[in-house]
């Protein structure tokens, strides 16, 4: 959105970043302060549902995302997400609200009661896109005080950050480099491995733990063979599945924001306005 103030963003943390993935949220906020942009949490945001509703006649399951998108539009801000699932769901629903007349009509009919009319005006950015496209890798590099020199890091994209590529438009879905560029910017060495954009098994962990187990073992073995010391991810469920199925693998699996905060020297800093949530840590 052209009139958007690029230093302040509407921020949709999502259910997991305010619960089990506090580190992903906390280090994103403190790193944003260090890099000079502000994340303003959308008031009363509602969970995105975790999985994009693929069925064309699913309307109610899209409303929470549209409410967040409309709130960002009304604040004249771009909408920033960090969790891969939130990003995937909200960006795909924003695309529906730009392109699918049937969904646009029915969603807006539902939202009349909330006095919301929305037609896909908001720009949705992943935190990594803010780093790449607004802050810039050179600036990130310049602000690094504790470079992770010598660390060999595998980027684990998983599925939701990149696909479907035509809608997500973050990077080349089959040959991405945004996380590798991130790893380079914080002073570490990216390690390439073929499983970096294949699925971890996702929510099937809820029903059949052998699916994420088989997937995770394959991903970890592949990254280890290629020489990685650790993996970075933006997705709490990827991290959960990989950590739970680590077995004898030497790899740690960490959120990209934790490494960013470490490199920027702000890992111990409590983000402004978040004292109650993070002071105890």
């Amino acid at each position: 959105m052209s009139e958007a103030k690029h230093s302040t963003y509407s921020y949709f943390p999502g259910c997991t970043l305010r619960n089990k993935a506090l580190d992903l949220d906390r280090y994103a906020r403190s790193s944003a302060e260090a890099l000079g942009f502000t994340l303003e949490e959308i008031p009363d945001w509602q969970c995105c549902g975790g999985t994009y509703p693929l069925a064309k006649d699913e309307i109610a399951t899209k409303l929470s995302s549209v409410r967040a998108l409309a709130a960002a539009r009304d604040a004249k801000q771009d909408l920033v997400t960090i969790c891969s699932a939130c990003h995937n769901v909200i960006k795909q629903i924003n695309n529906d609200m730009q392109t699918d007349d049937n969904i646009i009509l029915k969603v807006n009919n539902y939202l009349k009661e909330d006095k919301i009319a929305y037609h896909g005006e908001t720009k949705v950015l992943h935190y990594l896109e803010v780093l790449r496209d607004v802050v810039g890798w050179d600036t990130v590099k310049a602000k690094v005080t504790h470079p992770l020199t010598g660390k060999k890091i595998g980027a684990y994209y998983g599925c939701l950050l990149l696909r479907p590529g035509k809608v997500m438009q973050m990077d080349d879905p089959e040959n991405p480099k945004i996380l590798e560029d991130f790893i380079t910017a914080i002073g570490a060495t990216p390690v390439m491995y073929s499983q970096r954009n294949e699925c971890c098994g996702a929510y099937t962990v809820f029903e059949d733990k052998t699916i994420p187990q088989k997937r995770s073992e394959k991903i970890l073995a592949n990254a280890e063979e290629q020489g990685a010391d650790l993996l970075v991810t933006a997705c709490p469920l990827c991290r959960y599945n990989l950590v739970k199925n680590k077995g004898k693998s030497r790899l740690d699996i960490v959120y990209f924001t934790e490494l960013l905060a470490e490199a920027l020297g702000v890992k111990d800093k409590v983000p402004v306005g978040m004292e109650a949530a993070y002071a105890a840590k």
Binding site: C15, C47, C83, Y203, V205, P236, L237
Partner: peptide, 19 residues
């Protein structure tokens, strides 16, 4: 019965949507 201390909310809401 499916939950453990580390399971992210994301897994629960996604399972609800898919199952």
């Amino acid at each position: 019965e499916q939950l453990d201390d580390d399971m992210p909310q994301q897994a629960v809401v996604s399972a609800f949507r898919k199952y």
